[in-house]
Design a protein around this nucleic acid. Structure first.
Length: 660
RNA sequence: GCGCCUGUAGCUCAGCAGGAUAGAGCAACGGAUUUCUAAUCCGUCGGUCGGGGGUUCGAGUCCCUCCAGGCGCGCCA
């Protein structure tokens, strides 16, 4: 139990004892701004005064003496207009330190069972698979990852998810753009389509396609020689070497068998080529055979042109209907690149920021159709107009409508987003938190409305009104030399997550993103972030940690144990020591409060404050002294600070270096 | 025009389901270390919490209104 919770129960007990008529009551036990008022203050008397119709001062005067007799409380005094100020005994804080020291795993300290194992999902970043991650994505990544870690810390079964918008117009345009880059590399005339993606990163991906086609040509001829008989037999034989033939491969073999023999080699070699660039070994190839259907779209009746190059096949110029799926290839490449970037953005020893699930929009098509049919047959929440289908909100005088199916019959993004959230619920999440970018903030309301409608439409989902929480990760302005860096997605020029990590490092970037509430606009001063000086709060905190490690090292060399046994903590009595003890005791409350508010940014100011208190302590007192008892006690204090810093950093996904 | 976010010290921001005399960091100026990490510490300067009204014992915090800045408003995603 945290100190605050403990006091809360004590106060409530006393109140109920003194005033039995008090029913349920919500009061605060908080830290007063003014230090001289004491450690905690409660407004219980003023809140109860309303219910009881008694002067709050009178209530406070009645409660205070009772509180004074509790063993953790040193003093409880009354102040106008009815506050009770509480000072705790030093013992209470020393016990808390002992508590901290007894935790086995520093990175797990501060655990609270708020969530009771409830399944919660945090979906964040969810950048379109059309280019590298940018700085807003980076911000969402920092906040979302911290949120997941925080929720786990308070007992939720929290999962992270990245939604990949891998269908629709933009993905087609992406494919067109890649195709244009490919043609460009072949030395042919080409043009990036309107609304396409002119970023240079597609050139690199196009080079991979070139490589694929070159390898396919090589394989193709070799393959044709190796399989004097039927390529299908060859494939079967190859598969049999792996032991068994899974259904997906059987399906593929069946599919290949339907092709004109002249196309088989081509198809298989293109496929193998594609797979080997992605994964090593034949087993992996076999397990992924099904993908070929998406890579190469067959149509019957054509004959292979003599001496056709794979590049021509890719472009659909040889067999009508056969072509390389530029869209899908681009999406997969970009998604992998995004995964690599995120990995670099993670905490070093843990091997990066990994999402528990990468969910593809394209996997939802059936559910989207079903949802549309259900809405239509139900009829209560839709309107048909101009040949399109609109979702209509039930709320109030102002009815709102949003298109969910275009007159072309195509579902809109909104509809699949609704289906997506239904899918999340069906996967058993009891709560879902979405972190969206600034460009989506206009859609928060309609999504919430849609959820109300879904709750009505599908009562079996048992959707509670607060099931979905949407947070907005606001815009990020990058500053360099005091000036704003202009970013243009249209021109394909913008600062990426990778740039950011390269410039300032993952720890610094994360800390800066977590310094502010996620819904406030953020000025990111790159020059400041790069400075390895006292202007940079990240190093300030990390330095405190490194200092402690260094002290402990030194103490060990003097013959002290890492965790001193039988130390007399009572010796900690200097102002700086007491300040530190109190700050340490706040941590558990901070974890709970920031988890409840979904505000991981609170840790940054706490850490800066804790580090500051530690540095002051360090400056005024030696830890390792001639007196072994004082030394042991102070070592314990240092260890407590180290544990809390490590714990906080682990929630933030920032590393705690042992030396700097 | 409609909607969302933001407005707190010269700058960047905290201010934790309204609580007491509004806090940090940076910048500016002045000091401290024969010591376990000077990436440190101490001090000074700095505020009509965008303006106005309301709710109440009490408002930076809640409500209304106005002003300023940013963003979003397609049968795009």
């Amino acid at each position: 139990m945290t100190l605050r919770e403990h006091l809360q129960t004590l106060v409530l007990e006393v109140l109920n004892r003194k005033y039995t008529q008090v029913k349920s009551i919500r009061f605060d036990v908080s830290k007063p701004r003014e230090k001289s008022f004491g450690d905690f203050a409660t407004n219980v008397a003023m809140v109860a005064a309303k219910q009881l119709r008694i002067d709050p001062m009178e209530i406070a005067e009645a409660i205070a003496p009772e509180l004074r007799s509790c063993d953790v409380i040193e003093d409880a005094s009354v102040a106008r207009p009815g506050f009770i100020n509480i000072t705790l005994t030093r013992r209470a804080y020393l016990d808390k330190l002992a508590d901290i020291l007894s935790t086995q795993d520093d990175e797990a300290y501060g655990y609270a069972d708020l969530g009771q194992g409830k399944r919660v999902q945090v979906e964040f970043v969810s950048a379109n698979p059309t280019g590298p991650l940018n700085v807003v994505n980076a911000r969402a990544a920092a906040v979302g990852d911290a949120l997941v870690r925080l929720l786990k810390r308070v007992g939720y079964d929290a999962q992270s998810e990245f939604y990949v918008n891998d269908s629709g117009t933009q993905v087609e345009l992406l494919g067109e753009s890649l195709k244009a880059r490919f043609q460009e590399l072949l030395g042919r005339a080409s043009e990036i389509p309107d609304g396409g993606y002119p970023g240079t990163y597609l050139i690199d991906i196009a080079k991979k396609v070139i490589k694929l086609s070159t390898e396919a040509d090589a394989l193709d001829s070799g393959f044709a020689i190796a399989s004097q008989g039927s390529p299908v037999d060859f494939l079967k034989e190859a598969c049999s070497k792996t032991g068994q033939t899974p259904a997906s491969i059987q399906a593929f073999i069946d599919f290949i068998a339907t092709l004109d023999p002249s196309r088989m080699c081509h198809a298989i070699s293109l496929y193998i080529c594609h797979q080997t660039t992605k994964r090593a070994g034949f087993n992996a190839i076999c397990s992924q055979l099904q993908d070929l259907k998406m890579l190469i779209t067959p149509q019957s009746g054509e004959r292979r042109a003599g001496g056709a190059k794979a590049a021509d096949v890719f472009l659909g110029e040889v067999y009508d209907g056969w072509h390389f799926d530029f869209s899908r290839f681009a999406v997969e490449e970009i998604v992998e690149e995004q995964q690599r970037s995120l990995q670099r953005f993670g905490k070093r020893p843990e091997g990066g920021l990994r999402f528990d699930c990468w969910f593809r929009e394209s996997s939802l098509t059936e559910e989207v159709d079903k949802l549309a049919q259900l809405l239509i047959s139900d009829g209560r929440f839709i309107a048909q107009k101009d040949g399109a289908i609109w979702l209509r909100s039930t709320g109030g005088e102002e009815s709102e409508e949003w298109v969910i199916r275009r007159s072309s019959g195509q579902p809109t993004y909104f509809l699949s987003d609704i289906a997506y959230h239904i899918n999340k619920r069906r996967r058993g999440y009891e709560r879902v938190i979405d972190i969206w970018g600034p460009d989506h903030h206009g859609h928060v309301k309609r999504m919430q409305r849609a959820m109300e409608i879904v709750a009505n439409l599908l009562p079996d989902l048992n959707l509670r009104p607060d099931w979905l929480t949407i947070l907005i990760a606001q815009q990020v302005n990058l500053l360099k030399d005091g000036k704003r860096i202009q970013m243009s997605k249209r021109g394909g020029e913008y600062v990426t997550l990778d740039d950011l990590i390269r410039e300032v490092g993952a720890d610094v970037a994360r800390f800066f993103f977590l310094m502010r509430r996620c819904n406030s606009h953020l000025d990111f001063d790159i020059d400041l972030a790069k400075k390895t000086s006292d202007e940079n709060p990240v190093y300030y905190v990390q330095y405190a940690h490194a200092r402690i490690c260094s002290i402990i090292d030194f103490a060990k060399k003097q013959g002290y144990e890492e965790v001193p046994q039988k130390s007399n903590l009572e010796l900690l009595s200097a102002d700086e020591e007491i300040d530190l003890l109190k700050a340490l005791a706040d941590f558990e409350d901070l974890v709970i409060a920031s988890a409840n508010a979904l505000e991981p940014h609170r840790f940054t100011s706490y850490l800066i404050d804790l580090a500051s208190k530690f540095h002051r302590f360090y400056h005024n007192h030696r830890v390792v002294t001639e007196d072994p008892e004082i030394t042991k006690a102070r070592l314990c204090l240092c260890l407590g600070v180290r544990t809390v810093i490590r714990s906080a950093f682990s929630i933030m996904g920032i590393s705690a270096p042992e030396s700097m």
